[in-house]
């Protein structure tokens, strides 16, 4: 727990609230399960009721009144504007750049926001075999912007990733353009400690905001590279009572 002493919220709640705030009203948002789905549905219940949620199972404009466990729960199809096939969601919606925001998680992430969800250790002799790519590589490539939500520690924030499942900024400036990736790439990595954003010139993830009660040194200690701090390092606004109430009510719906 990194919440300040006496706070009535946890670091995970802060992370989810910060992620929800990052979503603009009306945006088309490609949602993965877990924290991204929680954050997106929180945004829909707070400042962005018209957020257009897209799940890779083909539900466009889903408006679930409870949190789904999987990306294909029946509640998503029941409440969607329309349901399309899997080839259609990827070919007609994601690939041409119709999605504003893609949300991704990570097992490993490096300073250029390249993400590994495939394997820890060598591919041929894995220490830990992870689920793999799913929709992530093309979400990372084609959404106008990408937001990553992940808890911050040295196991996850690594100097280099064991496998590039989804490209952030490759090896630095110009790589996305060279690869022909048409989306803008990661704009924000939201963790339980703060927010990291790519430096506009070097594209390196830089700490731009710390959550209340977090010392920037903690974030540096829990990062596997020499984490730079933005000169105008901000302090994240603590969750408001309204945000916390909405989040807790949302989580109550999962069971």
């Amino acid at each position: 727990m990194n919440a300040p002493a006496g706070a009535d919220w946890t670091a995970d709640e802060m992370m989810t609230v910060a992620a929800a705030r990052a979503l603009r009203p009306g945006a088309a948002c490609f949602v993965g399960i877990g924290l991204p789905s929680t954050a997106a549905n929180l945004a829909r219940r707070t400042h962005a009721p018209d957020l257009w949620l897209i799940y890779e199972s083909g539900a466009l404009g889903a408006k679930p009144d409870r949190l789904p466990l999987s990306i294909g729960d029946g509640i998503l199809a029941d409440t969607a504007d329309t349901v399309v096939s899997v080839p259609e969601i990827f070919n007609y919606w994601l690939q041409p750049g119709r999605i504003d925001v893609g949300f991704l998680g990570a097992a490993q992430i490096d300073r250029y926001a390249n993400i590994n969800t495939t394997v820890i250790g060598p591919y041929g002799e894995p220490e830990v075999r992870l689920p793999g790519a799913g929709g992530a590589p093309e979400i990372a490539a084609s959404c106008r912007e990408v937001i990553v939500i992940v808890r911050q520690n040295r196991r996850t924030f690594t100097e280099s990733v064991d496998f590039v499942t989804s490209v952030g900024f490759g090896r630095g400036p110009g790589d996305r353009e060279r690869l022909g990736l048409r989306g803008g790439g990661p704009v924000r990595v939201i963790t339980d400690l703060g927010v990291l954003e790519p430096d506009p010139d070097t594209r390196e993830l830089t700490l731009t905001s710390v959550h209340p009660g977090v010392d920037p040194e903690q974030a540096r200690e829990r990062t596997g590279w020499e984490l730079k701090l933005a000169p105008d390092l901000a302090r994240t606004q603590a969750p408001t009572p309204a945000e916390l109430a909405a989040l807790r009510a949302l989580l109550q719906t999962q069971r």
Binding site: Q95, A133, A141, S142, V164
Partner: peptide
């Protein structure tokens, strides 16, 4: 593969063509 790749592989199979084309995978270790 990725989901986009698998979906397109089935589309090609259903369409009677030998392969499918997509914007995908570029820069990944896949």
């Amino acid at each position: 593969h990725s989901h986009a790749g698998m979906a397109n592989r089935y589309v090609a199979g259903a369409s009677g063509v030998p392969f499918a084309v997509l914007r995908g995978y570029r820069g990944t270790d896949l």
